[in-house]
């Protein structure tokens, strides 16, 4: 389908296709670190297929609890591989629909330029009041941040300075408002088109934590929804892959 042509025509076409019922809405639970790329992908997906993806963003552990309690999501893009696997083994996801859509990178980031050095020595110096992370109990990026501090033998020293965001977006927001001088976030939150958007960052070496493989899965509620299947295929496609990589994810 061509995307050029007058917006009016495109609008009419979209309205017409909606009316004959070829398009549908699909409810998607998205790990908070994947917020920005997923918004772009959903917009392209709607343009190309007419299906509309309704996105909810949050911590992976929180979505797990919601899905176990009957949340109406059809597709789940988690921040780890464990949660989708658990859902599948517990019968809450479509068997065989799991796949890795992104491999995330953890960064130590500050909104202040020059605050974080490229070796992460700022952590050892400890000249800061607050370090923000996502809730390690529910957010995989938070759990990985704790692993990094543990492997650097800095957890005990930094523990009193830790402030915990409900999910990685809140951790980012604590840092961006300057209330926390620095914190661990996802590279995708601070990077676009291969460049750091602002501030200063240390990309945490891969040997300091486990690789953050982020898996997606079609949930039991989405089993008979063609739009859910279409979205998953779309995420695997070239266009979505390019968007995902532009935010610093590996694939």
């Amino acid at each position: 389908m061509k995307t050029q042509g007058s917006p009016l025509l495109a609008g009419l076409l979209f309205a017409a296709t909606s009316m004959v019922g070829h398009t549908a809405e699909v409810q998607v639970a998205v790990a908070a670190n994947f917020t920005a790329p997923m918004q772009k992908i959903a917009a392209e997906f709607e343009k190309d297929t007419g299906h509309k993806a309704l996105l909810a963003f949050g911590a992976t552990g929180k979505f797990y609890a919601q899905i176990k309690n009957g949340a109406p999501f059809a597709v789940f893009l988690a921040a780890d591989e464990k949660t989708p696997a658990t859902l599948e083994s517990e019968g809450d996801a479509v068997p065989g629909s799991r796949f890795t859509y992104a491999i995330g990178t953890l960064v130590l980031w500050s909104a202040k330029p020059g605050f974080v050095d490229d070796q992460g020595a700022v952590l050892k110096k400890g000249e800061f009041q607050h370090l923000a992370i996502a809730n390690p109990k529910t957010a995989p990026y938070g759990a990985e941040a704790i692993k990094v501090l543990t492997r650097l033998s800095l957890l005990d020293a930094i523990q009193p300075k830790l402030v915990t965001g409900e999910n990685i977006s809140q951790a980012y927001q604590f840092i961006v408002t300057g209330n926390a001088e620095l914190g661990f976030v996802a590279l995708s939150q601070v990077m676009f088109d291969g460049k750091l958007s602002s501030g200063s960052a240390w990309i945490v070496p891969a040997d300091l934590h486990d690789p953050i493989r982020q898996d997606a899965v079609i949930l039991a509620k989405g089993k008979d929804q063609p739009a859910a299947k279409a979205l998953v295929e779309y995420i695997k496609g070239k266009k979505a892959t390019a968007i995902i990589q532009s935010y610093g994810y590996n694939l």
Binding site: A59, G61, K62, Y64, A65, K68, N135, K137, T138, E166
Partner: peptide, 14 residues
């Protein structure tokens, strides 16, 4: 971490 937040944490972590 007041009680209401602690409850929220417990619920989120099942």
């Amino acid at each position: 971490r007041v009680v209401s937040v602690q409850i929220y944490d417990h619920v989120e972590a099942l």
